[in-house]
Design a protein around this nucleic acid. Structure first.
Length: 827
RNA sequence: GCGGGAGUGGCGGAAUUGGCAGACGCACCAGACUUAGGAUCUGGCGGGUAACCGUGGGGGUUCAAGUCCCUUCUCCCGCACCA
């Protein structure tokens, strides 16, 4: 028999078979343990790229492996299908976003299917379809009704190119995360989700996620940015107006020599109105505000400021200090006011030096004396309190508590916790998103759309013009509506939701995707959640992963789901590189998955991408190595196909009685392989070493065939071939299915049980140990596997080779490690 | 500046608990089969003639170090006036 490995015909054949038999469809069932394997759903840009191939190949191995292990595995896929690119396509090519998106989904779905991934397509979720966004809107209303969604006017990040606002998280180094355009500030009425209410829980519960990479948890911790301090009640000297400052270094309160306000601070205007400083202060504020956000937050920026002619009273000392405004204090953190302690803060030090403000040390390094005149940098370490009446001589850490206690007692300040995390701005002035289900009525004000009027359908009769205006404003049918409360003429909210809202709950919809009565049934969500394994790019470490955590906590609090965290284990995959850098059109180094699948087949593509590097690490694309994986699959093919008759002759069970040495060797390799592959997949997700173990198995089988001149033991060979195909099945699902059936097996290999190994088959008659002299390898010995240390020592001392090893020198001692080595220490 | 990760053959990578460094694959070299080979098979493949030397550099602990400790360099990623 000499059939060629024809992936071109057999891959589609089995894909069709799987689909027809529905072998990847799952339902809740009590007789099996559940496992939820999830890969981040893609934005339907039109074509799969290698990053997707990697993501979904990893997920498919996990899903198939867990299925074979006997779990009831949920493995769904869907589309994060709202977003700006669809609108840009509409402007550039005159295609409606809905058409463009639908076509892209169709194409990418076809590509995904050609990869042979084990998705339950019956559970497909598409965020831009009304049956999905109806529930996104419903969830918005749940937040609204519980005080977690609110509207406020705020200085928000505005991307002039995308013509929309952005969440803080979407601004990277002062530029739009998507298009790189410098972001402006704009005062707008916008919708926010109160994620800050959950700041502490989002922080605390990171502890409950041991299955997440430290790196991601650290990034979230930093983003939440908890800091403990004291809000100290300074007052304006002239008017008595309160000027609270937030500080984490209240131990330095006696070292305050000035106060700084953010230029936007509301007190600035009040304190300067009608004074000789007014005009100059206004000019300064204008200058600062003209700076783009990038410049304003840049480290390079020279600290600049000016005295505003007013003074503040330090509540601890009664002392009056000058009030300045500066470009290095920002309004939206703390109170927008900072106490200046140049002796112990490097920023304040620079500022004081530049403007000749006094420097007063209040913490002294042990055994040293600081003087404001001679200091060349701020002293930020710990030390002993000085110049701080009532607290002198204390360690500054001790004074932290003492001063905070004192201030609380005297009503001069109170302990507060500040977070860097801001509320999540979810309004987008764009068309292609889920409409915010709110109506504005002149009489009734802000009115939520009642549940029975959901979904608020995104209208199709809109115009796309390259002027940045939201096309939704042009819909003749959308804007005007009747107030749900009073029935009078009212207007709909024209903003749509940030797409991150849609992706914050899609994993719940997968649990119950066709439900038309609810977003999802609680029992179903509770059956599947949490996601046991979540896989995706590290670029979502903050945005998506934090929003999804927030959503699940809110839904938990509303009693809609039991889970408190969405993702039990998180795997962040590395990037796919070509010639050392990320694949991109502009660099012209893109390798198309479709081309690779056409040339080598999906199995080869999957094998390569899993073999070339461990999943978390970046992966360098290498055409020659792809060829190598293709050769390997051909080798597997020939090994099975050319021995089909023998394999079929073999018995279901092997007679473990009397094996030849060759039979023992090949069985050991096979069972060893089962052990290694099982461990590599389940304990470490090291698919690269799992595949190399399978390669070693194949090499051992070829070796066996050669050593026996083709006269192999049919039962042994059959056992080996079966285990080989079962181990390979999660990686290369098509070729293994074909060979499985050629071997005469009934049913899909993907519904077969994961292979087991026999401890007995792993045993060796003799094992090879190393003889070292002073740690250097000198010889090898074959010994019985159960030889203990004492026995090894005797063996070495009795050996005729001993003088050769030691060169006649004195033996100081002999170290033995059973099954491993003997080390003779000589002098 | 702060936080995290990584440096191993020509290349991707292995070494899981301190125990033979370089598994597996790619590339390369030689041979076999062949009209032919970009197919397949066999063998070789860190450096050095060798003793030996080799996991970014230097030091240390240990019978034994890629692995532990100290120190230093380089690269990548994230955060960055957060008071």
């Amino acid at each position: 028999m000499n059939v060629k490995y024809d992936f071109k015909s057999l891959e589609p054949k089995w894909q069709k078979y799987w689909e027809e038999k529905g072998i990847y469809r799952v339902t809740e069932r009590s007789d099996k343990r559940e496992y939820y394997c999830l890969e981040m759903f893609p934005y339907p840009s039109g074509n799969l790229h290698m990053g997707h191939v990697r993501n979904y190949s990893i997920g498919d191995v996990v899903a198939r492996f867990k299925t074979m292990e006997g779990y009831n595995v949920l493995h769904p896929m869907g589309w994060d299908s709202f977003g700006l690119p669809a609108e840009n396509a509409a402007i550039q090519r005159g295609v409606h976003p809905s058409v463009w998106t639908k076509d892209n989904i169709a194409n990418m779905k076809r590509q995904l299917k050609s990869m042979g991934i084990s998705y339950d397509w019956e559970r497909e979720a598409t965020t831009c379809l009304p049956d999905y966004y109806k529930w996104t809107q419903w969830l918005f209303l749940q937040l609204y009704k519980n005080g977690l969604a609110y509207k406020k006017k705020a200085a928000v990040n505005w991307c002039p190119s995308c013509a929309t606002v952005l969440a803080n998280e979407q601004v990277v180094e002062g530029a739009c995360e998507r298009c790189g355009t410098t972001v402006d500030k704009k005062d707008l009425e916008q919708w926010f989700f109160k994620i800050t209410d959950y700041a502490q829980r989002l922080l605390d519960d990171l502890e409950k996620l041991p299955g997440w990479p430290e790196k991601v948890k650290t990034m979230q911790k930093n983003w939440i940015g908890r800091s403990e301090g004291v809000e100290v009640q300074f007052k304006a000297a002239a008017t008595g107006d309160p000027l609270p400052v937030f500080t984490t270094r209240h131990d330095t309160i006696f070292g305050v020599t000035y106060m700084v306000l953010a230029p936007e601070h509301p007190m600035v205007e009040k304190l300067t109105a009608g004074t000789p400083y007014e005009a100059e202060v206004k000019a300064f504020i204008r200058k600062v505000q003209q700076l783009s956000n990038v410049d304003r937050t840049s480290n390079e920026l020279e600290k600049e400021g000016m005295f505003i002619g007013a003074y503040a009273v330090n509540p601890m000392t009664g002392e009056e200090v000058p009030i300045w405004i500066t470009n290095y204090v920002i309004m939206d953190y703390g109170t927008g006011a900072v106490m200046g302690v140049p002796a112990h803060d490097s920023r304040d030090f620079d500022f004081a030096k530049k403007y000749g403000l006094p420097i007063k040390p209040v913490i002294s390094p042990p055994g040293e004396k600081l003087s404001g005149e001679t200091m060349s940098e701020a002293y930020v370490e710990s030390g002993i309190m000085i110049n701080s009446p009532g607290f002198d001589g204390m360690a500054n850490e001790e004074a932290m508590t003492a001063i905070a206690d004192y201030m609380e007692e005297k009503g001069l300040g109170k302990r507060v916790i500040n977070y860097r995390l801001r509320d999540w701005l979810i309004s987008r002035q764009r068309y292609w998103g889920a409409p915010i289900p709110i109506v504005y009525c002149d009489k009734c004000g802000i009115v939520p759309v009642p549940d029975d009027q959901l979904p608020v359908i995104l209208p199709l009769d809109v115009e796309f013009k390259p002027n940045g205006e939201s096309p939704l404003k042009t819909s003749p049918t959308f804007r005007e509506t009747a107030c749900p409360k009073c029935g009078e003429r009212a207007e709909r909210e024209l903003d749509t939701m940030d797409t991150f809202v849609c992706s914050s709950w899609y994993f719940l919809r997968y649990c119950d995707p066709k439900n038309s009565e609810q977003a999802f049934a609680k029992e179903k969500a509770d059956y599947w959640m949490n996601v046991d394994q979540y896989i995706g790019g590290v670029e979502h470490a903050i945005l998506h992963l934090m929003y999804a955590r927030f959503f699940v906590k809110v839904l938990h609090d509303l009693g809609l789901v039991s889970a408190e965290e969405p993702f039990e284990n998180l795997l962040t995959q590395g990037m796919v590189l070509k010639d050392g850098s990320k694949m991109s059109k502009s660099k012209g180094n893109v390798v198309s998955p479709e081309d690779i699948i056409n040339q080598y087949g999906a199995d080869t593509a999957r094998m390569f991408i899993l073999f070339a590097a461990p999943p978390e690490r970046d992966l360098e694309w290498n055409d020659a190595a792809v060829e190598g994986c293709y050769r390997f699959l051909n080798r597997v093919w020939r090994l099975v196909v050319s021995n089909l008759e023998i394999i079929k002759k073999g018995q279901e069970t092997v007679d473990t009685g009397l094996f030849t040495k060759e039979e023992k060797d090949v069985r050991r390799a096979v069972h060893q392989g089962v052990k290694k592959v099982t461990e590599d997949i389940s304990q470490r997700f090291n698919f690269n070493t799992a595949i190399s173990a399978i390669m070693e198995m194949v090499n051992a089988m070829y070796d066996y065939r050669e050593k026996t001149a083709g006269k192999v033991n049919p039962s042994v060979f059959r056992e080996a071939a079966e285990k080989l195909l079962l181990l390979l099945a999660p990686f290369a699902p098509h070729i293994t299915e074909e060979l499985w059936h050629l071997m005469g097996k009934e049913g899909s290999i993907h519904q077969a049980a994961w292979p087991t190994y026999e401890a007995e088959a792993l045993k060796q008659d003799l094992i090879n140990i190393v003889v070292q002299v002073n740690g250097k390898v000198r010889d090898h010995l074959d010994v019985a596997p159960d030889l203990d240390g004492e026995g090894m020592k005797e063996l070495v001392l009795a050996s005729a080779k001993l003088p050769q090893w030691t060169g006649g020198k004195n033996i100081v001692k002999i170290i033995t490690v059973p099954k491993k080595l003997v080390n003779i220490v000589i002098k």
